[in-house]
């Protein structure tokens, strides 16, 4: 690990000013916030991240889960994944988020990992994690060996010719389906970013993964009020039974009335270069009967633009089955 200056932030302002010195908040940032450490310390050991300054935000007052006046939920940036997953309101009203969190990693990691950290979780692409290899995300312009190499786990949606790295988060998939908003404070004040606009597609700048700029500190995430009567499911498919990243996952929030779908929010995980909300699948379902045939149609729509790499073509069918089954599980209640 490269050496760095360790700074303990005493307040938000100090943390933001400290980070504002950075030239970028993206790959290779020279200032990094650390909370749980499960992504950053991991990547620092691999020399994939080599910040000169590390700002510890664990002592900032960002660890509360509270209801909002509009009936939604406000989740602090440093709320640990375990605490969020087991929070009574989350279990009750945002079950898809609880299930997604509990399907990710292990209890030990969930006890460390935070809400904001999980929003910024980095890809598991093996080429990204090995500094001896080219990687456009890690070293722009160096090439993407994954395209001709080991790409079984990599993305089928949202990839570019420069990068096919999958976003590995489970939490973000559920938050995409829940239409979360990410609240950021930065040197120029605060702003609210809908999760759909938070992560970026790789395009020709795969090193840029989010809209964050130097000094931006995620302070909290808000969820809108739950859709009353909605049913929520997170289904994750992988090789082994636990403690593994998704090959495909689906977060489903649907409301059925009189046998018809009257509200649907759908997102996919493990298949996209970002948490993958699928308006196309939602459109197929809306106002239609909640039947397995329609669920399959929605799944076909969700994967319509999927593009296979040499080893991951199966994920197209797998993701379809995953989504169709998640919808079926939700419909059954």
């Amino acid at each position: 690990m490269k050496t760095f200056e360790f700074i303990r932030a005493a307040d938000l302002k100090g943390a933001i000013e400290g980070a504002a010195r950075a030239k970028t908040a993206q790959q290779g940032a020279d200032v990094r916030f650390v909370a749980g450490g499960t992504t950053l310390i991991d990547l620092m050991k691999l020399n994939v991240e080599t910040p000169a300054h590390v700002i510890d935000i664990n002592r900032l007052p960002l660890d509360k889960v509270e209801t909002t006046p509009d009936g939604g939920l406000r989740i602090g940036a440093t709320v640990r994944n375990s605490d969020l997953a087991h929070h009574p309101i989350v279990k009750q009203d945002y079950a898809v988020l609880s299930e997604a969190l509990l399907s990710g990693a292990s209890t030990q990691l969930r006890n460390m990992a935070t809400t904001a950290g999980n929003l910024l979780q980095r890809t598991r692409c093996m080429y990204f994690r090995e500094t001896a290899m080219p990687c456009n995300k890690r070293k722009p312009g160096s090439g993407c060996p994954a395209i001709a190499g080991s790409n079984r786990m990599l993305a089928i949606l949202g990839a570019s010719e420069h990068c096919i790295a999958t976003n590995p988060s489970d939490m973000c998939v559920a938050m995409a389906a829940l239409e979360a908003t990410i609240h950021v404070q930065g040197p120029k004040g605060s702003r609210a970013i809908p999760i759909a606009g938070f992560h970026l597609l790789p395009g020709d700048t795969p090193q840029r993964e989010t809209v964050l700029e130097p000094g931006d500190l995620i302070t909290h995430v808000t969820l809108p009020a739950p859709i009353s009567g909605s049913r929520q499911v997170y289904l994750k498919l992988r090789d082994r039974a636990s403690y593994e990243f998704a090959l495909a996952s689906a977060a489903v929030v649907i409301k059925i009335a009189g046998g018809n779908v009257i509200n649907a929010r759908i997102a996919l995980g493990g298949v996209g270069t970002k948490p993958w909300r699928s308006p196309a699948a939602e459109a197929v379902l809306l106002s239609q009967p909640a039947t397995p045939a329609n669920f399959r149609k929605a799944a076909e729509a969700a994967l319509r633009d999927a593009k296979a790499q040499s080893e991951n073509g199966f994920k197209i069918e797998l993701a379809k089955r995953c989504l169709a089954h998640a919808l079926q599980m939700a419909a059954k209640g």
Binding site: K2, T3, E5, F6, R8, A9, A10, K13, G14, E17
Partner: peptide
């Protein structure tokens, strides 16, 4: 960022405690 700079020790000397304190209000280096 030159991660292999041999002079880059655990803490950047140029920052030091006082420099950091000035530059980063509200932070304790």
């Amino acid at each position: 960022a030159n991660p292999t700079d041999p002079n880059r020790r655990a803490f950047l000397r140029s920052l030091g405690s006082s420099a950091a304190a000035v530059a980063v209000a509200g932070c304790s280096t």
